[in-house]
Simulated assay, not measured.
Amino acid sequence: MLSKINQFFQSLGAEGQQQTNEISLEIACSVLLCEVMLADGQLDNAEQQKLSDIISKQFQLSNEEVQDIIKRSLALCENATDFYQFTSKINESYSTEQRITMLELLWKVAYADGELDSIEEHIIRKISDLLHLRHSEYIQTKLNCQTKNHPSR
């Protein structure tokens, strides 16, 4: 009986590890960007366009590839229970500077509609922590994006 239970838990662990390995870097980044876009409960056209532009530019993908990645990312967002499986993929592949760039991209999506919702800020903070970035890097990227989106501030 105990061996069957143990096998069950081992199979769950193996499936979870396999799923994490199947997630590409593009998908991992896109899921996090989608999470920020969806955080305020509104699918804003400006945020959707910013998301498409970022993915296209960041990964040098065609419009069709970008739409496919966004579609897959949105599906993963619906079923994800946390951000760890995505941030761990980024941590494995990205340097600190690249993770800071990723954080800037998250802020760009959040500010794309002209306003920052507190839930968007909260999600970005959580992701920043999971990317092992310092609080000062979180604040600096926020200020940089805030200044670019609202030059009068």
Rank of each mutant, 00 (worst) to 15 (best):
I5W: 14
Q7Y: 03
Q7N: 10
L12F: 08
Q17H: 11
E22I: 04
I23V: 15
L25I: 05
E26Y: 07
I27L: 15
A28T: 02
C29Y: 07
C29H: 06
S30I: 03
V31E: 09
V31P: 04
L32N: 09
L33E: 01
E35S: 09
A39F: 05
Q42M: 06
N45D: 09
A46L: 14
E47A: 02
Q49E: 07
L51E: 02
D53N: 04
S56K: 15
K57E: 15
Q58R: 14
L61D: 12
L61G: 08
E65L: 09
D68F: 00
S73E: 07
L74M: 13
L76H: 09
E78C: 07
N79S: 10
F83M: 13
T87A: 05
E92D: 02
S93K: 06
Y94E: 12
T96K: 14
R99K: 15
R99L: 06
I100Y: 01
M102T: 15
L103H: 03
L103G: 01
L103D: 05
E104P: 02
E104R: 08
L106V: 07
K108E: 10
K108S: 10
A110G: 14
A112C: 11
D113H: 00
D117N: 11
S118R: 12
E120F: 01
I123R: 11
I124M: 01
I124D: 01
I124Y: 02
I124G: 04
K126S: 08
I127Q: 02
L130K: 15
H135A: 03
E137S: 03
E137N: 03
Y138M: 01
I139V: 13
L143K: 15
C145F: 00
Q146I: 00
T147P: 00
H150K: 11
H150P: 01
P151Y: 13
P151M: 12
S152M: 04
